[in-house]
Every structure is written in C-alpha cells, then in structure tokens.
Design a protein around this nucleic acid. Structure first.
Lengths: 232, 232
DNA sequence: CGATTTATTGAAGAAACTCAACTCGAGTGG
DNA sequence: CCACTCGAGTTGAGTTTCTTCAATAAATCG
C-alpha cells in the first residue's frame, strides 16, 4: 500500500468519500522517507512546518526533562498522523521518535491547509482525529496519575491491542508490539525494574504474556477489569 | 462583559476579525447559565451535543476511577472553552466540574458547526485552541509521570500564574486561585497529606505562598527553574 | 563468536500513602 | 455575640510502593 492509499483509507474508515475528495487526497504532495529505529522523526522546539503519516513501524511522542527522565506520551502505529497535533501551532512541543524502523510520509502544513480549505469535510475529520488523540492523552494522564503499577501497565496493553485490532494487525488477541521494558517504563512513569516485576505479576496471574515483542492476551476480560479499560 | 463579548475577545486575542466574522460571532446562540460550586457542568459518558464557554469562575476537567480516585486533567478559567475537546466526538470522555460558582455560556454543537462552515478562519482558530489544550495535556502527563512531588506542584502554579496573567487576573505575581489542597492533590496525582507537606516546603524555600486561595509567587525564576516550566 | 543490549534478581532506601488525631477558620443558628 | 458545626489544613507514625544500585543471565546483532 502506498502512502496516498494509506491516507485515503484512513479517511475512509469514517467517511464515504466523494470523487472530488478522493482526487484531492491523491493530489496531496507526500514525501515518503524511511527512518531507522531510535532516530528522531521530528524534534521538539523546532518550527512546526510539516506533519507525518506513519505507513509502517512503531513510533512514539515523548518529552524529556533536564535530569534525563523522559515521558512517552503516546505510541503511534500505521495509519496514525503522530504530529497532526502540532498542526496550526508555531513550535513542536514534543519529539516524535521511531521505536522500530519506520516508513512514513511527510505532508507540508501549507499543503494540508490548502486541502482543509478546499475540502471542509476532510478538515473536520482531521480535526476530529486530533480530538481523539487529545482524549487518549487524557486517559494517559489518568493512567499515570491514579492507577497503581499493575493496572497502569495493563491499561497500556489493552489500548495497544485494541488499536492493533482496528488496523488488522492482531489475531486471536495476539500482536507484535516491539517495545522494550525500558520503553514501557517511560510510558507508564515507572522504573524499568518495576516494570519487569509488574510484568511477571501479569504473567503469574495468567492475564497475558509479553515475550520478545509479542503481546498475547490470555484473559481479555480479566485484563480489561484490572485496567478499568473503557472500550468505546 | 456579556457572553458574546467574551467569545469575541477570545478570538481577537489572535485574529483581527472582519466585520462579517464579528457579526457571525454575535449571531451565535449562547445560553448563559450559573452553576454552583461542586456541581457537574457536563458529565462523562453522555452524548456530546454542546460545548461551554467559561465567563466567570474556576472549573476543571476530571476523570474518575472505580476505587474513588479521581484525576483532574485541566483547570479552566474565564475565556476557556473547557470541553471544545469533545466537539465532533460522539460521547464526552470526562466530567467538567465547577470548582467555584461559575457563570458560563452553552453553545450547541450544531450552531458551532454552522459557524465553522461559514467562517473557516474562525474554525481554524478553534481547532488551534483544541491543539493548544492537547499540548497542555501532554505537559500534564509529563508532570504527573516524571516530576517529583515538589516540582510537580511548582509546575501547576507556574502554569496557572501564566494563564491568569494572560487574562489580566494577576498582579505582581499574585492571583486568586481558590483551590483546596485536595484538588491540588487530584491534579498532581498525590495524596492531600503529601501536597500539604510539599506546600510547606515550597513556602520554606520562599518560592511562593498559597493561603486561603491566594497564590503569590515570591521567586518566579526559582519556581520556573524548579518546575522546568517552559514559557512559550 | 564476541559485543552489546535487554531482561532478571536481590537488597537497601527513598518517596509517598494511609490512618487517625488534632487545629484552625468561616459561617450558622440559637 | 457566642457556641457549634463543618470543611479544610496540619501533624505524627507506621506502612506500602516504588526506586536505585549493582550484579547476573539471557537474548540479539554484527
């Protein structure tokens, strides 16, 4: 699937596109690049002039602190536009980082703006996706702020499994999720040592297994209950 | 200042409005209501059919957990549209709660949508404010996830002072901020006992005082440094 | 195969929590 | 006007959760 098709099917998940809209999407200039694991895709603090569409791979948004601590704010999977949230803002407020080798397409903000002006329905749908992203942010704040270690981790797994299923990358509650324990720690605001022990507890309770980047959930209902995950 | 003027001056902070835009704003149906402290303005889980504009008072967004724990996700002050973030979404994902007696104006989503269609510049500006809200959410996730208790609280105070200054409600780094320690606890993911001790430490270091809902910052630079607050 | 990253374990310690009692201040009603 | 009540703030003590440090084991990569 090429970049333009990815973008189109992203819209088509919600909208029935008109011929005109389809053409406008196809005409949007996309610049496809490959990024190696651990490279920064877009850096915090620089002017926000373009957004990216993730075609393949796993990425994250993160913000660092002076003492070297870092918080992962969201994971990004194919079909996501990781930094549409900085569209219309002057400056990026967080890093976008490739966690695995990624294939992605850049869209210049000025082209995106032109698309929005010409196709109001598409603009509204893009706006809506940024609002969904914001809702996920709120869930993460709740997660990190109020849940205990065990359910915090459980919640991340519930979210990722749900999203992977939505894009057809999961089967029988099992999917590839190539995250290290260190990365899970940065996403949940815990130390990696504690994540390790918490993972063992999740395994011991036979809720899931997470081995070499493969997540398999054995007891979905149990995990959902533990995480207080809300399926919408 | 009436509700319509509040809305207009919200736009005018960034845009130079045309006559037509001004008229469109004035024509937007607003339904002004008064809400008592501790009442729920808009409830989680119900269909999102309208948004609110805060005219006067202090409110917050919050999400609860089964065990009674609650996370405050954002504070809202006059000129904010606390739940524009649920515009275009089917269902509200968090409660909006009045922390003091509030005066606010409801806007029906269908009217807002009509305004957006007719006035694309206003639509983009509203979209932009939701993106700013999302950026603040990200900062909060970082705050709750990675900062230690002392700088976590410091960061909340830096943010609120900056915002109060922006709307002209602060003078000499002092402003009314009628929050209880319990509410600060729910915003920072700490227990109220710990907030109490942390506040004492902030006072002891002569960074600020926070007495009976009045925040006064004595050493702004020191507080900013402790919080690693980024002034944009 | 060796080098490097990732995962696991133990132990000590720090940060923050809970519980419970007590103080203080603001408002209320007798 | 004072006693009372109620909510908020403060304090102490014991406990839990999670962190840090450091060492080892296992997996992955070139």
């Amino acid at each position: 699937m090429n970049a333009s098709q990815v973008l189109r099917s992203k819209f088509e998940r919600v909208l029935a596109l008109t011929e005109e809209e389809r053409e406008a999407i196809a005409a949007l200039p996309l610049h496809v690049v490959e990024v190696k694991a651990d490279e920064i895709i877009l850096r915090e603090g620089v002017p926000a002039t373009r957004s990216s569409l993730l075609i393949e791979g796993l990425a994250c948004s993160s913000k660092g602190l002076g003492n070297g601590r870092r918080q992962i704010l969201a994971f990004h999977i194919p079909f996501d536009m990781p930094d549409l949230v900085s569209f219309l803002l002057e400056v990026r407020d967080c890093d976008i980082l490739a966690l695995t080798d990624c294939s992605l397409a850049y869209v210049e903000h000025r082209d995106l703006l032109a698309l929005c002006t010409a196709q109001p329905r598409l603009a509204l749908d893009l706006w809506r996706t940024t609002l969904v992203d914001a809702a996920v942010h709120r869930e993460w704040t709740l997660n990190v702020g109020q849940r205990e270690g065990l359910s915090r981790l459980a919640h991340v797994f519930c979210e990722m499994m749900t999203r992977m299923e939505l894009i057809g990358r999961a089967r029988d509650k099992s999917c590839a999720l190539p995250l290290t324990q260190q990365e899970l720690a940065e996403a949940t605001g815990q130390s990696s040592v504690h994540v390790n022990r918490t993972l063992q507890e999740l395994r011991r309770r036979e809720l899931l297994s997470f081995v070499r980047g493969q997540l398999t959930i054995h007891d979905w209902d149990g995990l959902v209950a533990l995480a207080e995950f809300r399926t919408e």
